[in-house]
Design a protein around this nucleic acid. Structure first.
Length: 550
RNA sequence: UGGGGUGUCGCCAAGCGGUAAGGCACGGGAUUUUGAUUCCCGCAUUCGUAGGUUCAAAUCCUGCCACCCCAGCCA
């Protein structure tokens, strides 16, 4: 059979498995799954697992299930399953089936009874503390439970009573009977069922015993006919148990194979659910969808295009090395995507008035919507000869290599004319108040007439007459680990992480509709938000590269 | 101190016995009505380390070192 070229070690394994012919009876179909527990919101770390799994499905024309790994009723809720589904869809991934581990509870229970009948599981009366105490240590073997050798009949009776609700939480557990002296702690008679008189968000009060991950996960994979169960590195130690569970359950070959990969880490990006929750609970952020959060809802809210996240995962690759990707790589992927998808608009965040003394009247000029998407589409932009430019685009004393405006210098007003600064009006504190310029009609943008007048730089502007008041929000970089190793993440996020300033923006951008993304020329990529207090609101997605001052 | 993993450029990451891909970052240059984009060019004689096998090793063998994971009735 024709095998696709493997681009990472997971695909190599899949190719080997395919080549071995083990899936011939199933038409060589590869089946994978993405199994989040619905106990929280998906974040950027999950995108890697998503991309890997959906990537495999795509590459091998296989199937993929979205499976809610909901075996702990105390933590799970529909709120999370809905948010997970939304996030997966937002990323543009289409799954073949939506499954719930909780739908397998009957089957799981049946297999547990089989374990008992086969002498592979027993009901243990030890308390949680006692089980911990007898588990042994890294270097010493554990001690066998005194209940380890109960008869099949007794185990069955007890287990059925557990299910019937005869015992309180913690009174008894079902344990797999494996090897208390195994060097792998996971094999020392792990608990596979616990009693929890807690209603399940989907099953209600039907159950008071719930299967543990180590039992439910492999069985769920096997039930669904998963061929490759991809998970993160910390489950490597569980693989022998994974295989044991499936083998003793008696599933027919071929059975799923677990393959582990390194999870995603990004510098200055908090990825642990626990800390993320802390930020929400302490009110450091406005919620799970705060634009500073690395949750998919947060990223979406910030204006990050889903494709940028997928490109990022592709760039990062898949391996087993523990690594931390520099967040510059993420930023670059976001820019890369926005560069071709975002329209351009002009905005000034720190306005200074520039008046052209020899211009009168007004006109409509052509402004290219996006010079990089190849469309060449333009839109009109009104010009009245009196504009706001950004304070940083003018210098009283131009630094070396300065390409923008200074007294006596020339600069092009983007899409308009080249102007020369003749005079500068200063305020009481010496700050620039107004810049007076002369414009040159023959330098009109797109003009056929050749002009000898040249300008080294091009700056953006917003017309005084038509410009709209705007509020710009930007999210500062978190303090980095090297400089502030002891700083708490919550503090880092809190520290000046939102900055706002008021300026002017073109009406085109202000009226373009909430959610639209623009590159505000040299100031960065921004998302349009709902107007507030009569002002247009623009929030930064990612800053633009700026090589000046390097 | 048991077991399971991992160590290739500042950061990710290919490589699978035949003489170090790529991306990010960085440096230089060209084009540009965004100091953006685009486009060139440069960027590990060396693969944790010490030995060994081989005509030939990042790739095979051995020892050592470093880091990560495992003692939830969480997933």
């Amino acid at each position: 059979m024709e095998l696709p070229e493997a681009t990472n070690f997971i695909e190599q394994y899949i190719n080997e498995d395919l080549a071995s012919g083990k899936y011939e009876g199933r038409g060589n179909q590869i089946v994978v799954r993405f199994p989040p527990e619905p106990n929280g919101y998906l974040h950027i770390g999950h995108v890697k697992a998503l991309c890997i799994n959906f990537g495999v499905k795509e590459k091998y024309a296989g199937k993929i299930n979205l499976r809610m790994d909901d075996t702990n009723p105390a933590k799970e809720d529909y709120e999370y399953v809905n948010s997970i589904i939304d996030a997966v869809k937002w990323l543009g991934f289409e799954y073949d089936n939506l499954f719930y581990a909780s739908d397998y509870y009957d089957k799981l229970y049946e297999i547990a009874e089989k374990y008992i009948k086969d002498g592979n599981a027993y009901v243990c009366d030890l308390s949680a503390e006692e089980i911990t105490a007898t588990r042994g240590t890294l270097t010493e073997p554990g001690k066998e439970s005194p209940y380890r050798n109960r008869s099949v009949e007794e185990n069955l009776k007890l287990f059925r009573e557990m299910k019937a609700g005869v015992y309180p939480d913690g009174a008894k557990v079902l344990r797999a009977k494996i090897d208390m002296s195994s060097p792998n702690l996971n094999m020392r008679d792990p608990v596979i069922y616990r009693i929890a008189h807690v209603p399940h968000y989907r099953q209600g009060d039907k159950w008071c015993i719930y299967p543990m991950y180590d039992f439910a996960h492999p069985v769920s994979d096997a039930i669904e006919g998963i061929t490759h169960s991809l998970c993160s590195l910390e489950f490597e130690n569980h693989r022998p148990l994974y295989d044991w569970v499936i083998e003793k359950a008696g599933f027919a070959q071929p059975v799923p194979r677990q393959i582990e990969f390194a999870r995603l880490n990004i510098t200055n990006t908090l990825m642990s659910k626990r800390y993320l929750k802390k930020l929400v609970d302490e009110g450091v952020v406005s919620g799970w969808d705060d634009p500073r959060m690395p949750t998919l809802m947060g990223l979406k809210n910030r204006g990050v295009p889903p494709m940028a996240l997928r490109k990022f995962c592709a760039a990062v690759g898949v391996a087993k090395n523990y690594g931390v990707v520099n967040n510059a790589q993420l930023d670059e992927c976001i820019r890369d995507e926005l560069n071709v998808t975002a329209e351009r608009a002009m905005a000034v965040t720190d306005p200074v008035k520039l008046t052209i003394t020899n211009y009168s009247g007004e006109e409509e000029l052509e402004f290219e919507k996006n010079p990089t998407d190849g469309s060449g589409a333009t839109r009109p932009v009104k010009f009245s000869g009196s504009v706001y430019i950004d304070r940083s685009d003018f210098a009283l004393v131009p630094p070396p290599k300065f390409k923008r405006l200074f007294k006596g210098g020339f600069v092009r007003l983007k899409a308009a004319y080249i102007v020369r600064c003749d005079e500068v009006k200063l305020g009481q504190n010496g700050e620039v108040e107004e810049i007076l310029c002369t414009y040159f009609p023959e330098t009109r943008s797109g003009s056929e007439v050749k002009s000898d007048i040249k300008a080294k730089g091009v700056i953006q502007w917003v017309d005084c007459k038509y410009g709209v008041d705007a509020c710009f929000t930007s999210y500062a970089q978190l303090l980095n680990d090297e400089e502030y190793p002891d700083q708490d993440y919550a503090e880092r996020l809190n520290y000046d992480s939102i900055k706002t300033c008021c300026g002017k923006v073109e009406p085109y951008a202000a009226e373009s509709g909430e959610g639209k993304c623009f590159q505000m020329m040299r100031t960065g990529y921004y998302k349009v938000c709902a107007a507030k207090d009569g002002k247009a609101q623009l929030s930064e997605i990612v800053s633009l590269k700026d090589n000046f001052n390097k």
